[in-house]
Nucleic acid binder design. Sequence first.
DNA 1: TCCATTAAACTCGTACTCCGAGCATAAACC
DNA 2: GGTTTATGCTCGGAGTACGAGTTTAATGGA
Lengths: 387, 387
Amino acid sequence: MTARRGQWQTAADVLGQVARRPGLTRAAVARELGLSTSSATEVTARLRDLELLTETPAPSQGRGRPTTVLRPHPRGPVVLVMELRQADWRSAVVTLDGVLVDQESKRHRSRRPDAVLAALQAGVGSAQAKYGDRLLAVSLAVAGTVRADHLMQAPVLGWSTVDLNPVVAGTGLPLLVGNDATLSGVAEARMGAAAGAGTALHLIVEVGIGGTLIIDGSPASGATGAGGEYGHIPFGDRSRLCPCGAHGCWDLEIDGRALARHLQEPEPDDPYNYAEAVLQRIDESPVAAAVGKVAAALATGIAGLVNAHDPEVVTLGGLAISLRAAAPDAFATAYSEGLMTFHRAAPPAVLDSTHQKTGVLRGAAALGLDHITTDTALATWAERTTL
Amino acid sequence: MTARRGQWQTAADVLGQVARRPGLTRAAVARELGLSTSSATEVTARLRDLELLTETPAPSQGRGRPTTVLRPHPRGPVVLVMELRQADWRSAVVTLDGVLVDQESKRHRSRRPDAVLAALQAGVGSAQAKYGDRLLAVSLAVAGTVRADHLMQAPVLGWSTVDLNPVVAGTGLPLLVGNDATLSGVAEARMGAAAGAGTALHLIVEVGIGGTLIIDGSPASGATGAGGEYGHIPFGDRSRLCPCGAHGCWDLEIDGRALARHLQEPEPDDPYNYAEAVLQRIDESPVAAAVGKVAAALATGIAGLVNAHDPEVVTLGGLAISLRAAAPDAFATAYSEGLMTFHRAAPPAVLDSTHQKTGVLRGAAALGLDHITTDTALATWAERTTL
DNA sequence: TCCATTAAACTCGTACTCCGAGCATAAACC
DNA sequence: GGTTTATGCTCGGAGTACGAGTTTAATGGA
């Protein structure tokens, strides 16, 4: 039978709740979505029959008939999430409650694109072997600029344009690709420091700066998925050429390369670890001055983006956290001075990320689950299960 | 009876189509939304019974049974749209097809906030007297920074924080407030140069620069509605203090004030008309040089925002159009050089707005219609009509 | 002129979701 | 052990969308 318009919308909403706030009880979900108890009964029964959810008795909370906790079904759908990084790749399998299982991590043997993609493809293959039909999608996070399903620029990997589709070749699975900074922002907005915010800005400094604007839990990824490259807006010195091809990129002002410049040290091969090392020397006064400048450059840019986007909250990741911690006054001053006057009375809070290393995979998991819990995807699953 | 979840979703979708593409036939709407003919019959019947739509015979297009054009019902709901500008205010009434009727325009007698708001309130009153229950909302565009239903900064009006609620006081109508630049961007994205684009960036230069990022037809308005103040990100000279309170705002680099600086003329009282006058003198070589610099500053900033947001298309309004036209080479060069390399092969088109003076009201109309055609709003209307 | 063709509207029976009301149930509280 | 409380379950009903089949109103050709 063909799916009817909006037929699975409520079921999708229920699954969305389960993914965003794992451990939620059936009664709580019903309250949240404004469902009547009869509807809740019916929807959960449907989801149970389709092997999407199971119900387990919930610990009782005072009087009243005890309710149940909604949990993913042991034969329910899963998504494979993968993160491609400079020296290694990680993967995990996600169930409908967003829990990561089967976590793996492997160093690259070779960094040639075809070798790395072959390794990822093998990972997809073994997940498919283990989970079979339950595996519905692959969500891949990469440390580089993404455009649709291509990696355009990945300085940390030393890659230029690479088609990522080989990762799922031969499996018939859809491949979702996202930038790592974008996905860590999604994690913060859904279940981290920015949870509940309608509009949130996430910025993460590693080598250069990445980030994303998140509106109602979805990243503003632009026309081709390359949105969020905040490192390449001209907040910096226009005379400096960025490896990206533009001039005066913010990127060049806020990471290890900028610290080295201020300290008149040679450009570091590994700006991330260099910056961490420099931050250890914060009691040396030239270091403190350099860190202050970089923290101020970071804060000024953030203030500009706050003016532009009016986020409810800003979350920081990576080196941005330690940079601010090392020069809190320089940061606070530059932030305040960069804001439009009317923002200064109650400026958006700038919070440290709550997810650190796991944020990227969690964000990839969130978008992967979104993909398999749309009403149309559920209709497809239902058709398959009831055959 | 209480409204059921999603009960009016399809009806809302149909009305959305009618508003976005007026003159659409019933058959076309059904195709567009993937409705079966039986559903189309039913939905239109329902909308007819509720005095939301009427059907008029469509001009026949070849063989086959003729279809009908969906038009707003003569007793259907309307929205009052208003635009508050420096010297005057304009208003119009919008029907469900987005057509503006009863257009009016009145100069301010006094520019004191209370006097202006009283005049607007009187306008609302007369619209309510004429349309009665049919008038469901007021959508107000203002030339200034908006935060929820307050105007925070309006340099062109000389106002600081002003509560705009008095405009609808005593009417019981909901007030929707939007920045003028944001709303003109909505008009471009819905039915202008950026029609069909998923992500579009709109920038309009008048005094300073305003704009908005539009995703799937909705502006990214931020937490409080102040989103889109692109003029106040630090693309400019950090030593210059902006009236907004921040330093180095882009605003200061791309309007009449910047032209005057480059020409070493005194700061103009009316930067907009000053800039238009300067552009008439483009054949003087110092003027050409100054315009080139300003056009380049505009293009460089646009390129940075393209890097950040990856829009499908950029639309220009106000002076931005004539600035680019006056210095096309400077603009094109700076645009290209500001882009990340991978964008340069196929950079987003930068198009002139198709709506000029009417864009703001059309954008306000679009958001107003959105507000009264949500499924919940339709349920309310239905309840009222069937009583 | 008349008939075939075409596209779309209409009718009817059905499936499905959600709801309200009423009832049943399982815990905590007293 | 009865009361209170929150929740789940059952049932009948309302409402939407759909498929299949039929009807309708136009065009275009014989």
